[in-house]
Amino acid sequence: MLVLTRRDVYELVPMRDAIDLVKQAFCDLSRGTARAPLRTPIEIPDAHGTTLFMPAYVPSLHSLGLKVVSVFPDNPARFSKPTIHAAVLTVSPETGEPSALLDGTYLTALRTGAASGAATDLLARPDARTLLVIGAGAQGPTQAWAVLCVRPIETIYVFDRNPQASQSFADRLRELVPDLQARVEVVNELDTVIPLADIICTATTARSPLFSDALLRPGVHINAIGAFTPEMQEIPPETVARAYVVVDSVPAALAEAGDLIKPLQAGIIREEHLRTELGEIVDGIKPARTSSEQITLFKSVGNAVQDLAVAAEAVRRALALGRGQQVSLL
């Protein structure tokens, strides 16, 4: 079995390639040719954590396997460890044998960024120049990296309740994008920068809206990737109600996305408002942005087809280049 580290995955699959892979995976998911059962979460109350088990099969990319990802918010304070840990196991679609084990922590950030990159490519205004990242943790830099791949961003505003995360954001982004040209500015107040943002990426575990809907500028595009349970919420219900909402998977969004479930339960929106999947836009079945003033919202709770699409490509390239370590389980 092949073992690939974070460094292996980073060097084998650049963000631009990951965006294309995720587009294909979402297209297959919307067509019904890919299979991704709703993930199974297991709560760990004593540690205030959640571990999620996420299988998927993407035939067009010859990819089958499982991701296990843990979100333990107390880790940084209690153990000086990251909030998110993950591993991806790929399985041969021909024989069912375990074929590779990959670091899933970086891969999760990569594929989540790639999903936002795909959505930004299809939904953001072509003249977008200003990006606001809310949540400067593990997901923040790859969100910015993905947006930089599809739009000529000149200024990146960064906000996080943890000052250390905000201050280290630029250095972590430059590790991913050594030739970074955009100006990175840490902000302490969201109200002053929300009206300046052409694109907003939210990557938090908030349980109430992060900003006021009234502050949004016309034509803004939002990638909301942080809130992944019915109890969590990053986006104001008023924004959800007036935006063109696109999701990664309708069944998953209706089961897990608090940003959408809470307005539904309050009667602010109806399910018909949430029927557009990103894969349908990739496939040309549903429209992308329809006007320069339209507010667009991509809500993602994450789907294992993203992980397995990127993982399969990393494994293919590693085998071709002789990268990684071979380990026998016998």
Rank of each mutant, 00 (worst) to 15 (best):
T5A: 14
R6S: 14
V9Y: 02
V9T: 08
Y10I: 13
Y10P: 00
V13C: 11
P14M: 13
P14N: 12
P14S: 13
D20A: 15
D20Y: 02
K23V: 01
Q24C: 11
A25P: 05
F26L: 15
D28I: 00
S30T: 08
R31M: 12
G32Q: 07
T33D: 14
R35C: 02
A36W: 01
T40C: 00
T40V: 06
E43V: 15
I44C: 05
P45T: 09
P45Y: 06
D46R: 15
D46W: 14
G49W: 01
G49E: 03
T50L: 15
T51A: 13
T51G: 09
M54H: 10
A56K: 05
A56R: 05
P59I: 05
S60A: 11
L64E: 04
G65D: 10
G65M: 08
L66S: 04
K67C: 06
K67F: 03
V69M: 10
V69D: 01
V69E: 00
V71F: 10
V71M: 08
D74G: 09
N75P: 08
K81R: 10
P82D: 07
T90I: 13
V91P: 07
V91A: 03
S92G: 11
S92C: 13
P93S: 00
T95Y: 11
G96K: 01
G96S: 01
G96N: 00
D103P: 08
G104C: 09
G113W: 05
A114R: 02
D121H: 13
D121F: 12
L122P: 02
L122N: 03
D127F: 13
A128Q: 11
A128P: 13
R129E: 15
T130M: 06
I134V: 15
G135Q: 06
A136V: 14
Q139D: 15
G140C: 04
G140R: 04
G140K: 03
